[in-house]
């Protein structure tokens, strides 16, 4: 618990939470004492756990696992596997995406998506990854706050662990956790184009070129922060995207915390998620302007 404990002490100082109640506040009521929005722009949250590959997890295992969750996640899709992305806080960050070659003992095992009928909740599984996603459905679903998602994540992770154990698939050696909040900030509500992005993001000063009077047509912002106490990194990416559910162009603001818990036990894993979620949440408030906060219906909670 040292690493998480160290990080929480930094957070405690940063956000002024009382020392005596810190631990309980994080586990019992992670939402206490922070900003909330009536209409937050978050459209998806992602909670991932990466572990050493389970070599016995071959393609037929997906079906066996699906049979245990099919009542809750009746639909599926086979998608390409995720690459390993492990934060090494002792090294400068290296961008993913360059050419990579590896010799595999056989064809790569895919990743499977299992999702519920309203398409609001998804479990992604591959031999080294367990991921739980929530997203807004086609019929507008209200945003479930972290305190409501956390028990679902705990329950599904426990179920997955139980499945791995009962099928003798190997030991789950957790390497890293990841939490991502994906926000869609609609053009036309408080800003009209990327020349006005400074109305949305506090970290962007406008980008206009005074000598030539040029204004940005598109903007892509990427920022990385090191999280304290070696708990990982925080990645921020703001980019224009076309949302294919309604063909609207929006600013997608993605905030990802990624790093390794001190040990693979559930207490440390979920302790990491609690702290990382706080960083993601508070960073969102810092990254976006008061003008947008007002549009999203800011409410300060005590």
């Amino acid at each position: 618990m040292d690493r998480i404990g160290g990080a929480t002490s930094v957070l405690r100082e940063a956000f002024g939470w009382p020392k005596a109640t810190w631990g309980r506040a994080m586990t019992d009521n992670p939402q206490s004492g922070h900003v909330r929005f009536e209409r937050p722009p978050v459209i998806e949250t992602v909670f991932g756990i990466q572990f050493q590959p389970l070599h016995k997890w071959q393609t037929p295992i997906f079906g066996l696992f699906w049979a245990t969750i099919k009542d809750r996640y009746p639909s599926y899709r086979v998608v390409p596997p995720l690459e390993s992305q492990v934060e090494d806080v002792d090294q400068p960050h290296r961008a993913m995406g360059g050419p990579a070659f590896s010799i595999l003992p056989g064809p790569p095992t895919p990743r499977c998506w299992f999702f519920n009928v309203p398409e609001t909740q998804l479990i992604q599984v591959q031999p080294d990854r367990f991921v739980l996603n929530w997203k807004r459905g086609l019929v507008d679903a209200s945003y479930p706050h972290y305190k409501n998602i956390r028990p679902v994540l705990e329950e599904e992770w426990a179920h997955f662990r139980g499945f791995v154990d009962s099928n003798d698939l190997g030991k789950l050696e957790v390497r890293q956790c990841e939490i991502a909040y994906i926000n869609h900030i609609e053009i036309g509500a408080g800003w009209k184009d990327f020349a006005e992005l400074d109305s949305v993001l506090t970290v962007w000063s406008g980008g206009a070129l005074n000598r030539t009077s040029l204004k940005p047509e598109d903007v892509n912002v990427g920022i990385r922060y090191r999280l304290p106490e070696r708990m990982g990194r925080l990645h921020v990416l703001a980019e224009p995207v076309l949302r294919t559910t309604d063909y609207k162009e929006v600013l997608q603001l993605t905030i990802i915390a990624r790093g390794g818990p001190e040990s693979p036990d559930s207490e440390n894993i979920f302790g990491w998620f609690d702290v990382a979620q706080t960083y993601v949440r508070e960073s969102f408030v810092d990254l976006t302007t008061d003008k947008m906060h007002a549009i999203w219906g800011i409410r300060n909670q005590s």
Binding site: V79, E178, T244
Partner: peptide
């Protein structure tokens, strides 16, 4: 491939 579910 990424972990995002929403299609953009």
């Amino acid at each position: 491939p990424c972990t995002q579910w929403s299609e953009v």
